[in-house]
């Protein structure tokens, strides 16, 4: 399990996790949980309009937007197939009493937000195991993170239309 083949920011995050012993990995995840950005106004208080990640052990909601790479404007979901060059914007809400879920959400937000859609789709599905948290966390937790990534990718591939599938 290496950081190879990951987009640059995500690679940096994975390398940070891999470079420290287990107890410090949890501290690092806690730091990430504290850095999860607050929802922008259009989502705050509207979690019911976001997608719930039911695989997580606590209420966690996400929204994925695709923005036009030239204009920077959001593309309406019904505006037809989006380009793989579209910019992904990621918004996640998780309660403070669920720091592990928040930590994972924050890793994904920092590692994927602002990347082209095609790049996000190419992120390997085993990302959660590359962080090296298998001993410190239960398998259930790690699968929660995989589910988050899976849902993000499925959201994007649905919008790109045929020929683009989540890996």
């Amino acid at each position: 399990m290496t950081a190879a083949g990951l987009p640059e920011t995500l690679r940096g995050i994975v390398e940070d996790f891999q470079s420290v012993p287990d107890p410090e990995k949890l501290e690092l995840l806690l730091e990430f949980s504290e850095e999860l950005p607050a929802l922008p106004e259009r989502y705050a208080g509207h979690e019911d309009e976001m997608e719930q990640v039911t695989e997580c052990q606590s209420p966690l909601f996400l929204a994925v937007e695709l923005h036009d790479p030239r204009s920077g404007q959001p593309q309406a979901p019904d505006a037809g197939p989006a380009s793989p060059d579209s910019i992904v914007r990621l918004f996640v809400s998780a309660p403070p009493e669920a720091p592990t879920s928040r930590g994972f959400a924050s890793v994904l937000a920092q590692g994927l937000d602002g990347l082209p859609a095609g790049t996000v789709l190419a992120v390997p599905a085993d990302l959660s195991s590359r962080l090296g948290l298998q001993k410190a966390l239960t398998p259930l937790r790690l699968r929660g993170m995989s589910a988050m990534l899976g849902r993000i990718k499925r959201n994007i591939s649905d919008r790109l239309g045929s020929g683009q599938t989540a890996g």
Binding site: L26, E27, L29, L30, E97, A98, P99, T100, S101, T138
Partner: peptide, 22 residues
């Protein structure tokens, strides 16, 4: 706790953490 990071976000003064999983 179920969530192993919860203790680190604040706990009863003097309380020690025990992690059922590890």
């Amino acid at each position: 706790n179920e969530d192993t990071l919860l203790y680190s976000t604040g706990h009863i003064p003097g309380a020690r953490k025990i992690d059922w999983h590890t």
